[in-house]
Design a protein around this nucleic acid. Structure first.
Lengths: 139, 139
DNA sequence: CCTTTATTGTACTAATTGTATCATTGTAAC
DNA sequence: GTTACAATGATACAATTAGTACAATAAAGG
């Protein structure tokens, strides 16, 4: 089960740029379950060779998907599906999962011996710096 | 019980290099008392086999921790947690491990699609209810 | 003791992966 | 035609991980 074939069909006549087609088709295959969170995508070079395009074109598609948090790319390592696309998941379930996640986090932080004040300050700082990083990405 | 199992959980989707994840998790386990000064860590090859990575990846993590004076590696002997961590080291360690923990948490929450506002509200709520629980415990 | 063998971390290098930058090409507007 | 711009390609680069050989220490056998 190590190899996902990930057959993408490019259509020259569609008029859409190749990188857009790659983005769309990977999203589709994720939605229909053909690929799943945690799966490794082909390397930019491997997929490029299969599609007979330049690997930078694939890299561009991957960069878009990465920005959308659908995949996680890591230089030297590869590209992995990250997101559990939550469109039809109920709001209540999503909220509960955040609640569970938060409690695990706070529990662990308490276990490390940190006070409520320090924890909430750290959350504020992290949120701030992470927001700034995203802003920088967008321009 | 001579053997510390040192269960580390690598997360492909975190985007962090493996050696960084190893560093962070060993720091955390030291801060929370799961491992203690004087303890011997697994050999680079043993931990590598368990994590299914190349032993040089573990060696790289150990080298970083060694440079930070958190562990002491000795060729031919093994790797040990430093006996008397200087106070400023242990304080920095505590801070860094909370930082890493917080970033993992926020990353995961973002990945689930929550906004900054919702996340910080949830943290506030959780901290509040957890504090109340502790108060109730104490009386 | 001394020698040999196994075990452990180290050093260096190679391979694999994504990134950054600029050049080229094609297409549309003017 | 010229220009502007978007898409793609070419090339060089950086980061991570893997492969191989080695050195230091400990353990075992004599």
């Amino acid at each position: 089960m190590e190899e996902k074939k990930l057959t993408l069909n490019l259509d020259i006549r569609s008029g859409l740029p190749i990188y857009t087609q790659i983005v769309n088709q990977i999203q589709s295959q994720l939605v229909n379950g053909n690929i799943k969170p945690g799966d490794q995508l082909p390397t930019v070079r491997a997929l490029a060779q299969e599609l007979r395009v330049n690997f930078n074109t694939v890299a561009r598609a991957y960069r878009i998907l990465d920005k959308e948090r659908i995949i996680s790319t890591q230089q030297g390592r590869g590209t992995y599906i990250t997101e559990i696309p939550p469109p039809e998941v109920s709001e209540r379930l999503r909220h509960e999962s955040l609640e569970a996640l938060t409690q695990r986090f706070i529990n662990e932080a308490f276990r490390l011996g940190f006070s409520e004040k320090v924890i909430s300050q750290m959350v504020r700082d992290s949120l701030k710096s992470m927001k700034e990083a995203i802003i920088n990405d967008n321009e």
